Computed example of a mutant assay.
Amino acid sequence: MFEIPKLKHTTSGNFFLLAGPCAIEGEDMALQIAERLKEITDKLQIPLVFKGSYRKANRSRLDSFQGIGDEKALRILQKVGETFNVPTVTDIHETHEAALAAAYVDVLQIPAFLCRQTDLLVAAAETGKVVNIKKGQFLSGAAMRFAVDKVRESGNEKIILTDRGNSFGYSDLVVDFRNLPEMQANQVPVVMDVTHSLQQPNQSSGVTGGKPALIETIAKAAIAVGADGLFIETHPQPSIAKSDGANMLPLDQLEGLMQKLIRIRQAVL
């Protein structure tokens, strides 16, 4: 069972990390990524939650990759958790998915576009799992208190909030770091979704773009202002990832980035 790290610090003094591929593409790939993530985070004493979407419901085009099958992908997430003794997180999109996903993972994630969906929040809360709510691109950090209230009033105090940038024009996002302390005012851990914050959505091609060269910049800034955790999508070869490859971090760059971020964390504690 995943226990939310204490606010501001974990037992190691580090931030915690939600990381993995955007989507579960297959068992071998998921286990390969999880093994490397486990090696890195154990070495650096960073609490890890393995992330993978079992289905991608929010796609620009009908022919975009959506998944390998719900239960097949969820079973892979379960195997990752059991093999490496790490908690797992996946996103849900409709109320009936809450109980389904909760049977396989430790954390249910509410996508940013759905953070105001009352029935979805209540369904996630009622599973008793940790609920990670992504802040809508159209909301301020302060406005997320209403999403927190919905989960708490449904009897669940196990809540994480995640920022993933704000809409800026039609095809870009910008990170307003005021959102992090505003969301921390709810007395819940706050995560910075580094890679999704660098998306360039709504491109004319129907394929989301991104600015992965700025991953380190956003991650460093988030740790400097006191983020409790980071969310980073990573893949051995982002260029061939079936979803969101344009803004993923190459897996071989993760350890070096984490080492830099730990030094910043130690400096600001």
Rank of each mutant, 00 (worst) to 15 (best):
Ile232Phe: 03
Ala222Phe: 04
Ser239Phe: 12
Glu216Ser: 08
Lys150Ile: 07
Leu180Trp: 04
Asp252Trp: 01
Ile133Lys: 02
Ala227Glu: 08
Ser171Thr: 13
Leu121Gly: 02
Met192Gln: 15
Lys129Tyr: 09
Phe168Leu: 12
Ala246Val: 05
Ile223Gln: 03
Pro189Tyr: 09
Ser204Glu: 15
Ser140Asn: 11
Thr162Glu: 14
Glu157Phe: 10
Gln203Asn: 05
Ile133Arg: 03
Pro181Thr: 10
Asp228Asn: 14
Asp163Val: 13
Asn156Ala: 01
Asp172His: 11
Gln237Lys: 12
Ser167Phe: 11
Gly165Lys: 07
Ala125Cys: 08
Leu180Tyr: 04
Thr127Ser: 13
Arg152Cys: 02
Leu139Lys: 07
Gly136Met: 09
Val225Tyr: 01
Asn202Lys: 13
Leu161Thr: 04
Thr127Tyr: 12
Phe146Asp: 15
Ala143Val: 11
Ala222Gln: 02
Pro238Ala: 01
Ser171Gly: 14
Thr217Asn: 14
Gly155Lys: 09
Leu121His: 04
Ser140Arg: 07
Gly155Ile: 07
Val194Tyr: 01
Arg164Pro: 00
Lys211Gln: 14
Lys158Tyr: 10
Leu230Val: 15
Ser205Ile: 10
Gly206Val: 11
Asp149Val: 06
Lys135Glu: 02
Thr234Arg: 05
Glu182Asp: 14
Phe231Arg: 04
Thr208Asn: 07
Phe146Leu: 12
Gly210Phe: 08
Asn247Lys: 08
Thr127Asp: 09
Phe168Lys: 01
Gln253Ile: 00
Ser140Val: 09
Gln203Phe: 05
Ser154Thr: 06
Glu126Leu: 15
Val225Glu: 06
Ala143Pro: 11
Val194Asp: 04
Val191Glu: 00
Leu120Gly: 12
Arg164Glu: 03
Asp119Lys: 13
His235Trp: 02
His235Glu: 00
Asp252Val: 02
Leu139Tyr: 12
Arg178Val: 07
Val148Gly: 03
Arg164Asp: 03
Pro189Ala: 10
Ala222Val: 03
Gln187Tyr: 12
Ser154Ala: 15
Val191Leu: 04
Ser205Ala: 09
Asn179Pro: 01
Gly229Trp: 07
Asn156Gln: 06
Arg152Asp: 01
Gly210Asp: 11
Gln200Pro: 04
Val188Arg: 00
Ala143Cys: 11
Ser204Ile: 13
Thr118Leu: 09
Glu153Val: 08
Val175Pro: 03
Gln199Ile: 01
Arg145Ile: 12
Ala142Asp: 15
Asp119His: 10
Thr217Pro: 09
Glu153Asp: 11
Phe146Ser: 10
Asp119Asn: 15
Thr195Ser: 02
